[in-house]
């Protein structure tokens, strides 16, 4: 019951198929007919998969879960754009009314050295978890906390931290960057925790360790194109990277002055 009036589309899909991490991948073509404009992009793929299963073929593997734009599972690049053509929108929230009948659509996994393909459109993004593990937290054990109102946080500071914390860890920023940099992802976390008084004690240590882990995981340096921010489904601001650079510099200098005690 879409408000815009339901119609159906016929599409030509070109989808990346790769049976396992070691296999050579290739594109395969699929003609798809009668897709409702109210369907999401993933629901369109469900229709294709249902047909493949009935034909006894292997369906297209892709990561998905909440289908509400918040879990960060979807990881596909659509016609060259991570998550497709609509700004601020994950693949699962991209609806087919954004396409026209007769459109050709190329679907491939998020591409980056640090995100190896597992199968078809599913990739391994555990490098992001490693980055968080190296410093993306406040070290506070359960039971340690003072009263929640003990430290006032200005409303705009909390809101700014929230905007950074809205990152869903999908990796679109990496897929969009010509250098496969994770600076927007790291910048979002460094901003989120660095802006809040609770994150202050580990401010230097956090940024130094997360940057090091990012580099070790095979992510590149910032390409300065801003493509990451444009691809980000949560529209995390490119300024988070500027902030990350300044935090990194500040921490590096401080670390040097204190003979490496913060790193």
């Amino acid at each position: 019951m879409g408000g815009t009036g339901t119609t159906t589309l016929n599409l030509k899909l070109k989808v990346w198929r790769q049976n396992n991490p070691q296999a050579e991948g290739h594109f395969e073509d699929y003609d798809v007919e009668g897709i409702s404009t109210d369907a999401s992009f993933l629901e369109m793929l469900d229709v294709v998969n249902n047909r493949l299963v009935k034909e006894g073929k292997d369906p297209i593997a892709f990561d998905h879960d909440c289908r509400e734009g918040i879990c960060g599972s979807c990881s596909m690049t659509i016609n060259g754009n991570p998550h497709g053509p609509q700004r601020g929108t994950t693949t699962c929230q991209l609806h087919m009314r954004k396409f026209k009948t007769g459109d050709s659509i190329t679907v491939e996994p998020f591409r980056a050295k640090a995100f190896p393909v597992i199968k078809d459109l599913a990739v391994n993004r555990s490098a992001f978890d490693k980055i968080i593990a190296s410093g993306g937290y406040v070290s506070v054990n359960a039971g340690n906390a003072p009263d929640a109102n003990a430290r006032p946080v200005p409303k705009d500071v909390a809101a700014n931290a929230f905007m950074a914390a809205a990152c869903i860890g999908c990796g679109a920023c990496v897929a969009a960057c010509t250098n496969s940099s994770a600076m927007l992802f790291v910048g979002a976390k460094v901003s989120h925790l660095g802006l809040l008084p609770q994150g202050d004690p580990e401010r230097e240590r956090r940024v130094l360790n997360m940057m090091q882990t990012m580099e070790d995981a095979g992510f590149g340096n910032c390409s300065n194109t801003g493509a990451c921010s444009l691809a980000c489904p949560k529209e995390i601001s490119f300024e988070r990277i500027a902030n990350l650079n300044s935090e990194f510099l500040r921490a590096t200098v401080k670390n040097r002055n204190t003979s490496g005690s913060v790193g």
Binding site: Y137, V140, A145, P146, A148, V153, K155, A158, H192, L196
Partner: peptide
């Protein structure tokens, strides 16, 4: 709530 705020959960706040 105390624990989550200490972790840096950015709950909505007053001015």
């Amino acid at each position: 709530i105390d624990q989550c705020v200490a972790q840096g959960v950015p709950f909505a706040r007053e001015y």
